[in-house]
Computed example of a mutant assay.
Amino acid sequence: MICLFGNQKGGVGKSTLTVLSGNFLSLDKNWPVTIIDMDYQLSISQKFEKAKVLENKEPYDVLPASLENFPMLSSVLTRNKKDAILIDLPGKLDDDGLIPVFQSADLVICPFSYDEFTFESTVLFAVVLKKVNPKVDIAFIPNRIKANVKFEIMSEVNEQLSKFGIITASIPDRIDFQRITTFQTPISLDGVITPIFEEIFADRLWKK
C-alpha cells in the first residue's frame, strides 16, 4: 500500500499525521512500514535521527528523498505489496515530479483546516490528484481545529470536500502533539487518533 500525505497548503499537519500513521500501523497493527520524507523541511527525518539516539530498535525506517528519486525508489519499495509505504509530500502542486507519485497512490490522507485559503488549496489539490489518479481514495482530516470554528463554514467545506472523498472526525489543537516521536505516540492522544485511523485503514488492514 502506498499512502500519501499531502495538501498544497503548508502547515496543515502533514508530517505529524504521517508519523502518527506510521506509529499506528507499525506499533498497533504490526504492519511493516517505511516512511518516505519528501517534505522540504525533512522534519520527520530529523525527528527520526534524534529519536534513534535515545531509543532502542526503531519500529520502521524513515528515508529522506526528493520527487526526482521516486521512480527509482518505487520499484524497490513496492516489491512487497503487504508493506505500508507512507510518503510525506512537499506542499506544492507545480512540479511534474508529483505525477508518478500521485499515480502510484492507493490512498491519500489530506489534512486541512476550516479557513477560506486552506479550503481553496485543499480543493485544488483534490482536483489535480483525481485528474492524475481517478481511482485513488482520499481521506480528509480536519486538523488542529480550534473550538470556535463556525458551524456554517464547517458545513459548507464538508459538503464540497465530500465530493472527492471521506471526511473524518476532527483532530483538536492540543499541546500533546508536540510530544510525538517516530517511536511512540503519547497515550493521551489514543482516544483522538485511533478511531480516525481505524476508519481510514479498516479495509486495508483486513486485506494486508
Score class of each variant (00 low, 15 high):
residue 87 I to R: 13
residue 74 S to Q: 02
residue 94 D to M: 14
residue 73 L to K: 03
residue 60 Y to M: 02
residue 79 R to T: 13
residue 152 E to R: 08
residue 185 T to C: 14
residue 50 K to G: 12
residue 174 R to N: 12
residue 162 S to H: 14
residue 16 T to Q: 09
residue 153 I to V: 11
residue 54 L to S: 13
residue 49 E to T: 11
residue 127 V to L: 15
residue 140 F to C: 08
residue 106 D to C: 08
residue 164 F to K: 01
residue 128 V to H: 08
residue 47 K to T: 05
residue 9 K to A: 14
residue 122 T to Y: 03
residue 27 L to C: 04
residue 37 D to G: 04
residue 208 K to N: 13
residue 28 D to A: 12
residue 13 G to N: 03
residue 140 F to T: 13
residue 111 P to W: 02
residue 58 E to H: 01
residue 104 S to E: 01
residue 65 A to R: 00
residue 6 G to Y: 09
residue 25 L to M: 12
residue 153 I to Y: 05
residue 142 P to R: 03
residue 202 A to D: 14
residue 122 T to R: 09
residue 55 E to K: 06
residue 82 K to S: 01
residue 23 N to A: 01
residue 175 I to K: 04
residue 192 V to L: 11
residue 11 G to I: 08
residue 41 Q to A: 08
residue 88 D to N: 13
residue 141 I to N: 03
residue 7 N to K: 11
residue 115 D to L: 03
residue 69 N to L: 09
residue 131 K to D: 15
residue 207 K to D: 13
residue 138 I to Y: 09
residue 208 K to P: 05
residue 131 K to W: 07
residue 89 L to I: 15
residue 119 F to C: 13
residue 86 L to K: 01
residue 137 D to K: 15
residue 6 G to T: 13
residue 105 A to C: 15
residue 12 V to C: 07
residue 22 G to S: 06
residue 88 D to I: 14
residue 101 V to W: 09
residue 110 C to A: 13
residue 144 R to I: 06
residue 145 I to M: 05
residue 207 K to F: 11
residue 94 D to F: 15
residue 47 K to A: 04
residue 71 P to M: 00
residue 17 L to E: 06
residue 129 L to Q: 02
residue 197 F to W: 14
residue 119 F to E: 11
residue 48 F to T: 00
residue 163 K to T: 08
residue 60 Y to R: 00
residue 141 I to K: 03
residue 45 S to K: 01
residue 104 S to I: 01
residue 81 K to D: 07
residue 118 T to H: 10
residue 138 I to N: 04
residue 37 D to C: 02
residue 120 E to G: 13
residue 207 K to Q: 15
residue 146 K to P: 04
residue 22 G to F: 00
residue 46 Q to N: 12
residue 137 D to V: 09
residue 183 F to C: 02
residue 202 A to P: 00
residue 88 D to R: 12
residue 178 Q to D: 05
residue 99 I to L: 12
residue 73 L to D: 03
residue 82 K to V: 01
residue 23 N to Q: 10
residue 150 K to Q: 11
residue 12 V to G: 09
residue 26 S to L: 00
residue 166 I to N: 09
residue 126 A to D: 06
residue 23 N to G: 04
residue 26 S to G: 05
residue 109 I to N: 11
residue 124 L to N: 10
residue 2 I to C: 00
residue 35 I to Q: 04
residue 47 K to D: 10
residue 41 Q to M: 09
residue 179 R to H: 08
residue 9 K to Y: 15
residue 140 F to W: 02
residue 89 L to S: 14
residue 201 F to K: 06
residue 159 E to S: 07
residue 105 A to G: 13
residue 160 Q to T: 15
residue 2 I to T: 02
residue 41 Q to D: 14
residue 109 I to F: 11
residue 192 V to F: 06
residue 188 S to E: 03
residue 58 E to W: 00
residue 46 Q to C: 01
residue 136 V to G: 10
residue 96 D to Y: 15
residue 179 R to G: 03
residue 101 V to R: 09
residue 114 Y to L: 07
residue 16 T to F: 04
residue 103 Q to K: 15
residue 145 I to R: 05
residue 11 G to R: 14
residue 140 F to V: 04
residue 123 V to K: 09
residue 190 D to F: 12
residue 166 I to M: 15
residue 165 G to T: 09
residue 146 K to Q: 11
residue 131 K to E: 14
residue 180 I to N: 11
residue 130 K to H: 04
residue 184 Q to V: 14
residue 151 F to D: 06
residue 47 K to N: 05
residue 81 K to P: 08
residue 20 L to N: 07
residue 167 I to T: 11
residue 181 T to V: 10
residue 93 L to N: 08
residue 191 G to S: 14
residue 26 S to N: 08
residue 128 V to N: 09
residue 77 L to W: 02
